[in-house]
Structure formats: C-alpha cells, structure tokens
C-alpha cells in the first residue's frame, strides 16, 4: 500500500461521513421548510423513509428474488422442484442438512446451560468482573479468528513427534494416539460445534447473569425462610424469573447458529462431512456456479428459521398491544 492509497482511503471515509451528514442535514432542512399543514406527514417520511427504503432494497426485495431463483437452473430457466430433488438425493447435501440440525440443537442448549451455570456460580463472588470478561472475550473475536485459534488447538502431528496442538498433546499425555481431529467424521462436526459454543456461551452468560440479578432478593429470601435448598430456590424462583431472558438467548443463538459460515469455512471448508447449509449455499452459488441450488438451500434455511420468527412475532405482538 502506498501513501497515495492511504490518503485515498482516508478521503473516502471522511468524505463518506461528510456526504452522509450533508444528506441527513438537508432532509431536516427541508422538513423545517415543509408546509405547516402536512408537517406530521413529512416528519414521518423524513424519519422513517430512509431506513424503510434501505431495508426494502437490501432485504425484502432480494429475499423474494432469491426465492424465485431457487426454482431455476444454472441458465436461469425455470426447472420446477429439480433443485430440491437434487438436494434430497445427494448424500453429501443430506449430510449437510443433518449437520445443520445437529448444530442448531446443540449450540443453543449447551451454550445456554453452561452460560447459566457459570453465571449462577460466579454470581456476587469476588472477581466476578474478571470471571465474566474471560468467558465473554470470545464474543469479540471474529469467527475467522476463532477458527484459526481452534485449528491450532486441533492440530495433528504424526504420533511419535512432538504435538503442537493442545488437544492431541492431552491425548498423548494420557497415553493415547494422536488423532486427525478435523478429518475424523463424525467427531469433527462436534469439534466445530465446540468453537461456536465457545463463542456463544459468553453471550448467554452475560445476559442471564443480569437477569439473575434482577430476580427480586425478597423472593429468594422468602424461599430461604421456607427452608428450601439452593437447588429448589433456583428451579422455583430464579428460573421462572429469567424465563423471558432465556427465550431471548435461545432465539438469538439459534439464529446465529443457523447462519454459521465462517467457522466451517476456515476450519474444514466443508470437507469431511462437516458442511452446513450456510456454507454449502456459498459453495453452490459461487464455486459450483449453480445459483439455483444455492438459492434452494437458502430457502430451506429460511424455512428452518421460520418457526423461531413466528414465535417471536407473537411475543412482540403481545408487547405492542400492551402499549
């Protein structure tokens, strides 16, 4: 990179921000000049329209287009359900679908359970902040970075030579033979899942920890006077108290898991039976030049997420009605 490039990049950023500010400023300037009578209307337009237009162009329209693409072949001709037939007859793709289900079952539950346990254990302890920061840190790490970190942990060297991957070293310490972790199906899928759990546990922990603190102390004290043991207090008082947060955490992690792409891509590139839908979609659409097949996979992914959307929308609706 040359200095000229750098200056160009700085100009772009500063210029971009300035133009953005100017556009927003202009919008409000015209809003002030708008006729008194329709002012409420114009106000709504100025505040809402930019976001709505962007969301429509960026998400709604493309999603519809992609849904249609799912019924075409690689030349763009309509081919009915061929792509779906292909999907459910290719052993590799069926494997991908099964993997995705394993991911979405394991990641949210394990991260939530571990995160919750951890949050309870460290609650009000000395050094709580540090404890939290340590487990939360992976959240700040990109999934590509996380992929590299864990690839290093799983690294394999021939038996007899020094291991440089921690996991194999542990196996060797216990007298075992080193294993090609990332190539050994089906354990490799679970090892990739560990990475996602590693990232998401911190998220679950932090949200649930705050929820636990919000459970009224009086209720817990009352239960204690009633002679309940800590486990009963946890299941009878704390758990119901944090139910809402649990739902949020599970939903969030499930959606994140369904979309997981970077981890698989950096660690195994989808080989050795580890592919998931989000990764396969990219492979089909871009590498294999079959956008129809890629879109069909995207559609399946969307259908998988749909129940979660519907559930959350129902909850939202209740909320908005209270207002």
């Amino acid at each position: 990179m040359t200095t000229a490039d750098l200056i160009g990049k700085i100009i772009q950023v500063v210029g971009g921000l300035a133009i953005f500010a100017a556009i927003v400023g202009l919008l409000f300037f015209f809003l002030d000049k708008a006729p008194k009578r329709g002012k409420d209307y114009w106000q709504l337009v100025v505040f809402l329209a930019p976001a709505l237009i962007l969301v429509f162009l960026g998400l709604i329209y493309p999603a519809i287009r992609t849904s249609l693409l799912a019924f075409t072949n690689n030349r763009g001709d309509f081919n009915g359900l061929d792509n779906f037939v292909w999907m459910f007859t290719q052993p590799a793709i069926i494997n991908t679908l099964v993997n995705t289900v394993i991911w979405v079952l394991l990641v949210p539950t394990v991260s939530t359970v571990v995160g919750l346990a951890y949050a309870v254990f460290i609650d009000k302890s000395r050094g709580e902040k540090i404890y939290k920061a340590l487990v939360f840190m992976p959240m700040a790490i990109s999934m590509v970075g996380a992929g590299i970190i864990w690839k290093f942990v799983y690294d394999y060297r021939q038996s007899g030579t020094q291991q440089i991957g921690l996991l194999n070293q542990v196996v060797v310490w216990f007298g075992g033979e080193p294993v090609q972790w990332l190539q050994t199906s089906p354990i490799n899928t679970f090892l990739l899942i560990v990475v996602m759990i590693w990232i998401q546990t911190g998220f679950a922990m932090v949200v649930l920890s705050a929820a636990i603190k919000a459970v009224p102390v009086e209720q817990l004290e009352a239960a204690e006077i009633d002679g309940t043991n800590p486990w009963q207090r946890f299941t009878n008082v704390t758990l119901p108290g944090i139910r809402g947060s649990l739902v949020v955490v599970l939903t969030t992690i499930s959606i994140a898991t369904l979309k997981v792409f970077d981890i698989v891509r950096t660690m195994t590139a989808g080989n050795f039976n580890t592919s998931v839908i989000a990764n396969e979609m990219y492979t089909q659409a871009f590498r294999a030049a079959e956008p129809g097949r890629g879109s069909a996979l995207a559609l399946v992914l969307f259908i998988l997420v749909l129940p979660i959307v519907i559930y959350n929308v129902r909850v939202m609706r209740k909320q908005r009605e209270i207002r």
Partner: peptide, 15 residues
C-alpha cells in the same frame, strides 16, 4: 461444469 469440476469431483476424491 463447475458443479462437478470445482465441487463434487473434489469432494468425491476427499470422501
């Protein structure tokens, strides 16, 4: 075709 030459042939070899 790319679906074979840059995808399933490679993956087939791996499997």
């Amino acid at each position: 075709p790319a679906a074979v030459g840059s995808d399933s042939f490679w993956k087939g070899i791996v499997a």
